[in-house]
Design a protein around this nucleic acid. Sequence first.
DNA 1: GCAATTCTCGTAGGGTATACGAGAATTGGC
DNA 2: GCCAATTCTCGTATACCCTACGAGAATTGC
Lengths: 261, 261
Amino acid sequence: MTVQHSGGGPAARTLALLWRKQTQRAATKARGRKPTLQLDTVVDTAVALADERGIAAASMGNVAKALGVGTMTLYTYVPSKEELLDLMVDQVLLERGLPGPGEDRPANWRAQVGLYSDETRAMYSRHPWLARVSTIRPPIGPGMLAAREYLLSTMFALGLPPARANLAALAIATYVDSAAGGEAESDLIERSTGQTHDAWWHERGDLWEHYFDVDRYPTMTAVWNDGAGDGSAYGDGTREVTAEAYRYGLDRLLDGIAATA
Amino acid sequence: MTVQHSGGGPAARTLALLWRKQTQRAATKARGRKPTLQLDTVVDTAVALADERGIAAASMGNVAKALGVGTMTLYTYVPSKEELLDLMVDQVLLERGLPGPGEDRPANWRAQVGLYSDETRAMYSRHPWLARVSTIRPPIGPGMLAAREYLLSTMFALGLPPARANLAALAIATYVDSAAGGEAESDLIERSTGQTHDAWWHERGDLWEHYFDVDRYPTMTAVWNDGAGDGSAYGDGTREVTAEAYRYGLDRLLDGIAATA
DNA sequence: GCAATTCTCGTAGGGTATACGAGAATTGGC
DNA sequence: GCCAATTCTCGTATACCCTACGAGAATTGC
């Protein structure tokens, strides 16, 4: 089997878009009708639409309408919806103001991880739809690489050897991205359904006494009773508990990593 | 504003389905045409379809076709696609053979968490589509509760006080579910695209030298060079590194949790 | 045997992505 | 100045998706 090389495979096309390499017009002499849009405009519009009304609103038709062009016009700028999504993802990944090599960063490694955490949570908060797009085969653009580089260098600052630093960076990214994504998604659902998380749990809490069998779930019952006094009536449903669990887990993970340094 | 009580709100309907509470026929005297299907059959078929050909293949039309009935017939058994998804999710969550209260379980708490990890990874492996459905407002069925109860009781076994046990259980679940989901999704993509993860990275690796700026990513470069000898040419793209990072992160998280007990 | 009830499912409407191809706009070369 | 080559625009059509509606079939109680 032959692997696609730098020529013109679909992977090459996507990478060229991600890195904004002008393959077409700028390279060859300008000829033919002038484009009315720019790639960045298309991506920005799609992101704005997704931010405001959810990822489903960022359909090709809606994006085109928002730009005042026919739906099919978009396909001049982007080969498919999938590539557009890749571009959207890398664009928002890059929004995080993570310092590059040589730039100022927090003094100690924990604070550096804290910055990654804060920036990532803010990013998900601005773009909740990000949580619902798969990132296992991420768009390898500037945004993704910048974040990887930052976290990795932070683990070096802690003094981990290269291989271990790589493992630690992956573990932290897994935890932070997942938790931040969940948090943002929760907020989005609250906004879009108009029902708070607490109200949602409450709606079901009433019915729990119907199905909930204390003998089958003794520990949950114990936790429930223990926390009944402090206002968090429905356990992990509340915002506070979720946020607290996030901090707790991240701190413990960092504790564990530090212990192996 | 009035909260929906046990009467017949949409939440009540969903809960009744999740817990297989026979609201209709069994309660009232049997009358009218007999159903040709059972709810479980519908859910099983949908799960099987999603397992084999991805979540997109579990459309109402496809499920109906697989069952040999008209599409609209499904709506007698399930109010909407969304509820069907909830049922699918809780069904597979319950597949994990996590011991309930009083049943045999591994001796020490780390092994207990290990069981949760193994069972969860196996579950995602069987049902990769699970990674792509949102679980912030999870179906509150037997499957979800059983897993919560198990993890929580494990944290009690470690000796954590109730509130802290709750935080720890949430943190572990966040990490394990996210990592296991990512792993399974990766496998799914390999199967469905016929392209291994390594091949995918390789396809892009060729192009990296085109866009990759060593000065902007010095740490990545260092890790790359360090690992260049051991066969994992493209860093975290490989299966082995991912699995190793998962174990490393979970162990460090548990270390940290144990230290606060 | 008929009425009440329940399940079945065809049709239709509104959504999605995108392949195709005709037409409009622009410019290089003559 | 004109034409051909090139590039962008976008209407139409196809093939999916979910699901509201309503007509008809099946079953049972009375």
